[in-house]
Design a protein around this nucleic acid. Sequence first.
RNA 1: CGGGGCGUGGCGCAGUCCGGUUGAGCGCGCCUGGUUUGGGACCAGGAGGUCGUGAGUUCAAAUCUCACCGCCCCGACCA
Length: 568
Amino acid sequence: MRWSQAFIPTLRESPADVESPSHRLLVRAGFIRRLGSGLYAYLPPGQRSLLKIAGIIRAELGAAGAQEFFLPLPHRHSVGRDTGGPARSGDGLSSVEDRSGPASAADIPHEAAFTELFRREIRSYRELPQVWYQIHAGLCDELRLKPGPRRLRQSLRMDSCSFDRDPSGLDRSYRLHYDLLCRTFTRCGLKVDTVEASSAGTDCSQSVDFVVRMGGGEDCVISCSCGYAANLECATSRISEVADEPACGAPRRVPTPGQKTISEVAAFLGAPATHQIKSLVYIAGDKPYLFLLRGDHQLNEAKIRAFAGNMAGRQARPDEIRELFGADAGSLGPVGISGMPIVADYALRGRQNMTCGANQDDFHLQGVTPDVHFRPVWADLRAAEPGEDCSRCGRPLGMYRATRIGYLRKLATASRESGAATVLDAEGKQVPVAVGNYGIDLERILSSVVELCHDDDGIIWPGTIAPFAVVLTPVNYRESVKAAADKLYEEMQGAQLEVLLDDRQERPGVKFKDADLVGIPYRVVLGAEKVSRGQAELFERASRKTELVDLASVIPALQSRLLGSVPV
RNA sequence: CGGGGCGUGGCGCAGUCCGGUUGAGCGCGCCUGGUUUGGGACCAGGAGGUCGUGAGUUCAAAUCUCACCGCCCCGACCA
């Protein structure tokens, strides 16, 4: 490609509203442009890199025996309804309206389409295992969009499904994908961590996220030196012990005028936060839920989804709380409450003689004992926090921010009913198939690499996903230098090197700055003096080191370096 | 969905409070000519704007009012 003909619109200055270094560099280097909130166009350099990533994924999946599909995007109601359930507002699915009907889900989970095909076409256990995948632009109805290429209405991703005849087969498919994702990320130049992921809402028995550590990441990971690592959404920690005074008789109602928060009540009644019950009301699917925690603990909202029909709950409004409890939020408690589920965190189990709201403004109850004065459902609701003790080894937990770029899920076969994929086993009986889901987000790979691999001058691509392998930079595109550049350009193309010839009528400084910004791994510089001696400069972007090479050995030198830079 | 902010050549901004000498400017980029040519050159000339859209107030609106649209931030936390 000749740079004079290429569309690589580099910018000297940064646009406003950049949210991260990767966002700024991808825009400045001409890889992406925003077309709307959460909508980014990938320009030719960006598309080239995305295709490189897709190529790596296809190669790894192909080597593992997976087969690629091309699935339709705007499914009608019928597809996915059986298996994926109806599209609900706020469930992360976009919807569209068209001539053939009212709003229909525009983005049924890929496993719904795969499962549909499987049910129609696969009959016998002898046809298993199957691993099916597609690489496509999926839609996502983000509640909160952010500028930058990581929270999008649309994202390019790989989704795959494995179908096995039994759990041990699923174990193999899962392991296959685990290894394959690891190799894919490594080849893209990323170091990844695997962390336990929330299984809420996805109905799965095992769930792992692949994440890249980075400051601006949208996920939090709780981790421990013993190897425990989990997404904050599902992380746990050891519950600190609290000693209780023995309970005596029925709860006592005490006046607490104007005392609403946990800390106010603690000061007023002398009841420490650890001896209080925190009562939180959520509404999900028009139904109220009462969640109880120890006063010093925080609710993890991701964990409550399992109790709210997997729907996104919201905190109840003040008017709803008053209608349900006859009191305001500062005076709520579980005693005497019926007509709604009461879910209590494990940290309250076995406790006694605690303090909570009396469901009457300005009054609290003391001497309340769970399982005696109210009967909750027990669950893990508490948000783990850094500094608490690891539930495995007892050492203090750490936390870091990260971006999720891939996942593995084993679907729970037992709970799959009418929509389940089945086959006939050796005895001719219908048996459920063990299904796994796996995914990779290609755009996040791209932006994560830039986030982690750049310097003040621009992007530093790993050779595997760079838009071009080498940029050929004649200092002046004239006379002997032009002749040498044209000749070398032809030879590089003949050698299958992805070369960009900077034939623009620009000063050398502009060419160097642009090449650094775009981040092309190698640069071959041709200047009049060196060319007259049959030499060229070979510049490596990552190390910023230059060496003199004979013109005749430029191509072999590049080839050996590029091969060396490809891991696995 | 709630609260706040912004919208001025391709990009970044000033001007808006206090309506009128501002024929709407500046930096970067872009075009032409010339001088340059190893890390974002210089000189001269030039193109490019429904001041987000629509209505209103006024002798007069980028500037004041209302509505709508778009975008950004914060909150509700989503894959």
